[in-house]
Nucleic acid binder design. Sequence first.
RNA 1: GCGCGGGUGGUGGAAUUGGUAGACACGAGGGACUUAAAAUCCCUUGACCUAAACAGUCGUGCGGGUUCAAGUCCCGCCCCGCGCACCA
Length: 815
Amino acid sequence: MKRFTPSEIEPKWQKIWADDERYRAPDESDKPKYYVTGMFPYPSGAGMHTGHFFEHSIVDAVARYKRATGHNVMYPMGWDAFGLPAENYAIKTGTAPAVSTEQNIANFTNQLQRVGASIDWSREITTSHPDYYRWTQWVFTKFYERGLAYQKEASQWWCPVDKTVLANEQVEDGKCWRCGSEVEKKSMKQWFFKITDYADALLEETPALNWPEKIKTAQTNWIGKSDGIIYKNKVRDTDLEIESFSAHFEAFTANTFVVIAPDHPFLPALVDGVDNADEILAAAKEMVIKRDSEGPGSLANVEGIFTGRNAIDIFGDEDLPIWIANYALADYGTGIVLCSAHDERDFEFAQKYGIRLKPTMVPIDPIEAEKVKNLEYCFTDMADGVLIEPKAFEGKIAGSHRQEIVKYLEHEGYATSTIKYKMRDWLISRQRYWGAPIPVIHCEKDGAVTVPEKDLPVLLPEVEDYEPKGESVLASQHEWVNTTCPTCGGPAKRETDTMDGYACSSWYLLRYTDPQNDQAAWAPEKAKYWTPIDMYVGGDHAVAHLLYVRFWNHVFYDMGLVPTKEPVGQLVYHGLIQAEDGRKMSKSLGNVVDPLEVIDAGYGADALRTFELFLGPINENSNWSSKGIAGVHRFLNRVWTITQEYMEAEKGDGENTELTALQHKTIKKVTRDIERLSFNTAIAALMEYVNDLYKLKTSGFSNEWQAPIESLVQMVQPFAPHLAAELWQQLGHDGQLDFEAWPTWDEARTVADTITVVVQVNGKVRAKLEVAADASEDSVKEAALAEENVQKFIGDKKPTKVIYVPGRLVSVVVK
RNA sequence: GCGCGGGUGGUGGAAUUGGUAGACACGAGGGACUUAAAAUCCCUUGACCUAAACAGUCGUGCGGGUUCAAGUCCCGCCCCGCGCACCA
């Protein structure tokens, strides 16, 4: 008998698959299309780790299952190749990022081939290649034309170590996401994409997405829509007017003071003419620095500076003193807030600085209401709070009169309703070399002009020194920088910032549909066939990437380039495979498991893949186990052995309904489990199947075993494709297993002749009995009551009720 | 603080609409084969009680409840993980 040797069969089949280009997906087919892939990786120098392998074990299992069930499957692969690590490596070693990136890609590619991933390599893309970023730049110019790309002077997060601007989501706890150093604020001219224009459109589509709830919630919160109102108040002794936003305006007459953000652009004008204006501005500046370095403060450390100005109360009450407060944000709402006794921070702030407070909403309980009136605590419960003024709303529940209050405020001319979002526009410029150059030329006469399509790509020039010096390395490439204006032909300079890597990854799923197109980013009819992607698998990026792909696709939809607003159908979010010690795998902890070492140790890629899926549910974290993989290898070996034994055995004729029931039952279970991505239980079902086949084989093989053995090989294919291909061939098939039909089950044959029925007396199991599968209800009940142990517990009482759950149990109730 | 998950044997985890809790696997123990070991094959393995049981008791974070029947549903708690967090 041949031995199971992964190190022989795996390279054999990998070569066959590569030579045949077997997994190349045609752009048209009679079969339904199925587009699936994982989030393309950044090709780091460390190579693929077990986590990457995990993602591809999932994607490949799905791709292979879908192929077997008659789909035209596209499983493409690409590289998110622009980014800081390659550039930092270049700064350290002098190796051009283009060179080190290619090496890393070669390494990743080899690793993916070694696991037998059924990738359509003809669609491979690399974001740092000019034939790709040419179209990233093209998208930029289109966005610019549509008013979705713009430049503005802005105070931005700046990493002093990486010497680059960072997007909000690249700042974690006041530290740079890459190097971990403290970030600071710096004002500079930056490019933005106007994602806020699509806030509502994105929000509207979110609930219907077939995505994990937690990601949908995260995105909804990130967009952070709130409807509220805008007040306008005149500033006493000046011609100035301030605007403030309020989303919790129910107790609107409670406002007794105003706060403004310390970095608000309006602040200098506001304090102009106040005696100690300079001191105030200096203190405000200090407040900004302190806030930026210490991060957001807590309730307990609200701080303020009086501006010396007062706003005139629109409701005709006393003036509202205007304070600078550290908790007011310049870039949310209008940066100015009317404050009241019904907000915890405002309350805290007023108490600290002795500012007048006037509660106008109280609890129903009169004792509690008195406490609120006496400012013993801050009452914020809009849902249950009773308004005590103004007259028009006296005695009404604040929360349930929101709309009436808005109407009232608008009608009386006190305020206008509006909508605000937490989400800011997407800052995309980076003062970095290793990215796609922003395709803009600055001309003295014509201003910022985008590079015409015929002149794209704006190639990234080769440089000698990668060390950034406060601006992009590109700024020192004078020959590259100095150019002519495409509009007037006069001398002009190129934009030296490059685009955020997220720009490159925001459209790559579309490029996969038409990767070699040199006339367009993609042909709309290709996108029409392939998109939206049916399944997108990843374990990272709750908001950033997953919101940006949606944003871009919405724009492309408006441009008529894609068939649907949303780019991603089902999103599958997987957990991490952690180290055996339960910690995250990391080089510094020395607990990283190298997938190729596992393969080379003799377990093979099939065992590695199967084991990763067997560890637990894919959406949860699990821990690597070196013992566990041995168990899975044992299972695959048993699949191999029983198939060999079957092929070599002398086979008689014979019927075995138990065997057939087993086969059909397992096909049903495995198919359903794969459909719901419950791979661990699908594999467990296959293990159970093999264990049962081992028991049945003790009474000899017959010709009737052919179908059960073939089903086993077919079902094992998505997990252990090399083993399955080899066995399929040995079983005498010429065809390609990947495209053979998935085994189907016949419901009628999933049930054996006899079934086990449990008998409960007062909810406790007292007996089990074997009955014919087609036994009548009455006969089962009768047999159940006749059981000795059942009789023992019934005693001389009479059953008050006998319940029969078909095929499962009989429940006897005795009182 | 807000949001989303989750607490089941020594371990990872099953139990799809309430219907035999612990599938499958690891680990552990025993046996077969072998000069021996590895590999392989077979058996046992929630706790308690028991000489043993296909006899019984308990058992899915804690306390109540609904039901013939609850890991699953309801009410009230405790704990853990993750994400977001000065958004007026």
